[in-house]
């Protein structure tokens, strides 16, 4: 019952969250995150991760899909990681003049590591004015039964520019 109520609340928030961003065809955030992993009967291990997550618009102002590709370092070893990712906008931030100040969105991903890691999880992200994204991520390593906690900061390596020149419709009769 509680679960349903939570889902209903989330759905209602998403419906209200259309706002003014999350409408680019493509975005490519580059994220640096760090944190730790904790497996049963093991010490906490530092994790530093660098990844890019190219995503395309699936539902305008609501949902993006894409992949995450990157690498992480832990215990002095470097590993590769990659897999699919979804991002769901759940709220818009306040307005400055007529423009939104940013958005809050959730992500879900399933990442495979180069050393049998199987990471299933997601994150909570604050996209500040389409400039920087602050993230809080949790993933469960299904293979090593470890929990990963990370905080991150991302920069939009690529997103569609607003065209400096608007072209007239080429079919127009001149």
């Amino acid at each position: 019952m509680k679960k349903n109520a939570l889902l209903l609340l989330l759905f209602a928030a998403v419906l209200r969250a259309s706002g003014q961003d999350f409408n680019e065809k493509w975005v490519v955030p580059l994220e640096f995150s760090q944190g730790f992993s904790k497996a049963p009967s093991s010490p906490e291990l530092y994790i530093g991760q660098l990844s890019v997550s190219p995503q395309f618009k699936l539902v305008d102002k609501r949902l993006r899909a894409g992949i995450t590709v990157g690498g992480f370092i832990t215990s002095g070893q470097v590993y590769g990681v990659g897999g699919p990712r979804l991002a769901l906008k759940i709220a818009k931030l306040g307005k400055i003049f007529t423009a939104d100040a940013g958005n809050l969105h959730l992500s879900a991903d399933y990442l495979s590591g180069t050393h049998k890691q199987q990471l299933l999880g997601g994150g909570f992200h604050a996209d500040l004015a389409e400039l920087l994204i602050l993230s809080l991520n949790y993933r469960r390593d299904l293979h090593y039964r470890a929990n990963w906690f990370q905080v991150g900061i991302a920069y939009h390596l690529y997103r569609e520019k607003i065209p400096a020149t608007i072209q007239s419709n080429p079919t127009d009769v001149r």
Partner: peptide, 9 residues
């Protein structure tokens, strides 16, 4: 429409 950060970029 886009976010206000576009003013910088």
């Amino acid at each position: 429409k886009h976010s206000v950060g576009r003013i910088l970029t």
